[in-house]
């Protein structure tokens, strides 16, 4: 059989990057759709917070709360924090709890009258170790009904991340951005 000249039309697939906005938006929608399927896995994934073999942090955020147990549940269920210690006061309120996540700690307690109770909402930044980990946290947050104040995006300073507000009114910036400690690196 003679060759078919129309075979010359053969067009191999060449990858083509679509609009960045379209790509990011589609990724968010896929994460939202897949969240119910992924959520089960997230509960039992130990690799999210294992690199704690570093020196104890020398700065810790302490968050007095109107309802410490509600805050602890939110941090544990949605962000994968783990409870290191929890001490109750005689009246059953939380006197002190240390929650840890990767290399850092957050102290949570029920607010007491006096100078140590006079705090307001803060912003807490978490540095995940990969885009994939951030995606999983985002899916988990969506699935858990967390208040999202910043949709998943790639910020111009290079962080892949999103923002939440917790039940106490604090803001959480969760992304891949992890600035070093110490003076600015020499360039």
């Amino acid at each position: 059989m003679p060759a078919d000249p129309l075979d010359q039309l053969r067009l191999p697939i060449a990858p083509l990057a679509p609009r960045a906005l379209f790509a990011a938006d589609l990724r968010r929608r896929l994460l939202a759709e897949l969240a119910p399927v992924l959520a089960g896995r997230l509960q039992e994934d130990p690799t999210m917070t294992t690199d704690t073999s570093v020196a104890a942090p020398t700065i810790t955020v302490a968050v007095p709360c109107d309802d410490a147990r509600r805050m602890i549940d939110w941090m544990v269920d949605l962000l994968g924090f783990q409870v290191g210690e929890l001490h109750e006061a005689p009246d059953g309120s939380v006197a002190h709890a240390r929650l840890w996540w990767r290399t850092g700690n957050v102290f949570v307690s029920d607010r007491r009258p006096g100078p140590w109770g006079a705090t307001g909402p803060v912003a807490i930044c978490l540095a995940g170790d990969s885009d994939a980990e951030i995606d999983r946290l985002y899916a988990r947050a969506r699935q858990g009904g967390a208040e999202i104040i910043q949709e998943l995006e790639d910020a111009d300073y290079g962080s892949h991340g999103f923002g939440l507000r917790d039940p106490e009114g604090n803001l959480w910036a969760i992304g891949t951005h992890r600035p070093p400690a110490g003076p600015a690196p020499v360039t």
Partner: peptide, 12 residues
């Protein structure tokens, strides 16, 4: 996968 799928569909 996204650029491959998009590239395929654009060219067709």
């Amino acid at each position: 996968a996204l650029p491959v799928v998009y590239g395929f569909l654009c060219s067709r």
